[in-house]
Simulated scan of single mutants.
Amino acid sequence: MKLIKQISVFVENKPGMLARIAKVLSEDGIEIRAFTIAESGDFGIVRLVVDDHERAYFLLFDAGFTVSSQDVIGIEMESTTDALYRIASALGDGGVNIAYAYAFTNAPRRTLLIIRVDNNNLALDLLKRVGIETVSQ
């Protein structure tokens, strides 16, 4: 099973918070592979995929942040609407809900899509059935 460990950091929605997170990770040589920020009024969630999940988790925790860890699915895909459609329809038709997703381009015409779903095992099986490969940490 190919899953990626993601760290979520609950923070106040105010200037400098992302810099504080980045500083903690930077000072210990942790590389951020992908991240997204979701805000909800006075607070936000910074979601991170890093090269050393366990170390990053404890560094942020020890720095006083409220952190949690989740398993997410990573899919390297072509940067096309058709590729996204194939993924979303395979999961939707199979009854898997996508709670959230974020993506970044990691090579020309290639995108890494990170998704959080309600059933990882079923999602991985459905993706495999339609020939969609997932990536690991």
Rank of each mutant, 00 (worst) to 15 (best):
K14M: 04
V117K: 01
L124D: 01
G131D: 06
N97M: 06
R116Q: 09
I114C: 10
E27M: 10
R116T: 01
V96P: 00
T111G: 00
Q137S: 13
E76S: 10
R110W: 09
F43K: 14
M17G: 01
S79F: 13
V24L: 05
A38L: 08
S69D: 00
S26E: 10
G131H: 09
I132W: 05
D52H: 11
E39I: 05
S26D: 06
D62H: 14
D82G: 15
R86N: 13
I114F: 07
L124G: 06
K14T: 03
F104N: 15
T66N: 13
I37T: 10
V72L: 07
I98L: 03
I32Q: 03
D93S: 11
L48Q: 02
T105A: 15
S26C: 08
F58L: 13
A63V: 02
S26I: 08
A34P: 09
T105R: 15
G16M: 05
D51L: 07
I37D: 01
S40T: 01
R109Y: 08
A90Y: 05
D125F: 08
L112H: 08
R110A: 07
M77Y: 13
V130T: 05
I37V: 14
E12K: 09
T81V: 15
D52S: 12
S26P: 02
D93P: 08
E54Y: 12
L48D: 01
V46N: 03
N13M: 05
